[in-house]
Amino acid sequence: MFVQDALARFAASPFAHTLLALTTAFILGTAIGFERQWRQRNAGLRTNVLVAVGAAAFSDLGMRLLGVEGATRIIAYVVSGIGFLGAGVILKDGANIRGLNTAATLWCSAAVGTFAGSDMPAEATTLAVFVLAGNTLLRPLVNWVNRRPITPEVTEAEYRVHAICSPEHVSDVRDLLDEKLDAAALPVRSVETLSDTEDQVELAAILVPTSAAEKELDAVVMALERSPLVHSATWSVETTA
């Protein structure tokens, strides 16, 4: 009985559209996933294919049941639902975050699938090309930018002035850091203790400015080192997130 009902409801033309949508999503998801698998990412070939095909299937189902309105509803759930899948590939490694690009690629694979499932194979193909271009053609540019040195004049970053002193002089050196940095118009956000031993303590004053001149920081360090309370001083810079 079930088989007879299924055969009675079967329509060749809508099925052909579904088959085309899933095939398109499968091929384009394979192209995107192959690039991820080649680079040994967490979400590789199979994951991207399944995301694209699944998004295409849901979009096609909504289209067949309720037309454009049904597809729109389904796509909204796909967009929000893919966020949970993307969160699973994002890893925190110390101060670094890994997997953001992989999560974004999965998000784009879902978009490719929704295009395919909404009977827009040309748009799906175009998006897949852009995703592949973003993950491959932009890589040399990213590597070039990452190799550039962090320069105080142009980089928005977190600046720290370090001072090493004896444990009994910590309070005075804190005040000295505030005094010298304030005189240089470099206000302090906070002062942290980076290391604390019986012989010495390393303090780090975190500055409020996100850009500073190297000469100004060097001048502050020289002023600190002239104090008999300070064993040594230096400054460092790290890019902000």
Rank of each mutant, 00 (worst) to 15 (best):
M1A: 03
N101Q: 07
A110R: 04
E158Q: 14
M63L: 15
A204P: 02
T193K: 07
R36P: 10
R148A: 12
R36I: 08
H162L: 15
S59V: 07
A204C: 03
D178H: 15
L91C: 03
I150Y: 05
L137H: 03
G67P: 10
T136F: 12
A16W: 11
A128H: 01
L207A: 07
G67L: 07
G62D: 01
T23M: 11
V173T: 01
D93V: 09
A110G: 12
H231G: 05
R148P: 01
E238N: 10
A163M: 09
D199S: 15
A133K: 02
A111L: 09
I150A: 09
L22C: 08
T126I: 15
V51L: 10
V49N: 01
P14Y: 04
A219Y: 02
R189Y: 04
F58W: 10
A128I: 05
S190Q: 12
V173K: 01
R46H: 14
M120K: 10
P167A: 11
R73Y: 09
Q37P: 06
T105V: 14
L106K: 03
A57R: 01
T151C: 04
A233F: 03
L85C: 05
N42R: 15
Q4W: 00
M63W: 07
D5S: 00
A111H: 07
S166E: 14
W235T: 08
E153S: 14
V188N: 03
F2T: 05
N146S: 13
R41F: 06
A124P: 01
A8I: 01
A241M: 04
H162V: 02
T23F: 14
A122L: 13
R9F: 03
L217T: 10
V68Y: 11
D196E: 12
T210C: 07
R147W: 04
A95C: 00
A157R: 07
T193G: 00
G44M: 06
P209W: 02
V161T: 05
A6F: 09
L106Y: 11
I90K: 04
V112H: 04
V131A: 02
L85R: 00
A43R: 06
V154Q: 10
A122D: 07
R46L: 14
V142S: 14
T197H: 12
N96R: 14
P209N: 04
R160G: 07
G99P: 10
R39P: 02
V201S: 11
D196Q: 12
G99V: 07
F58A: 11
L20S: 13
I82V: 15
T136W: 09
H231E: 14
S118N: 08
G67N: 08
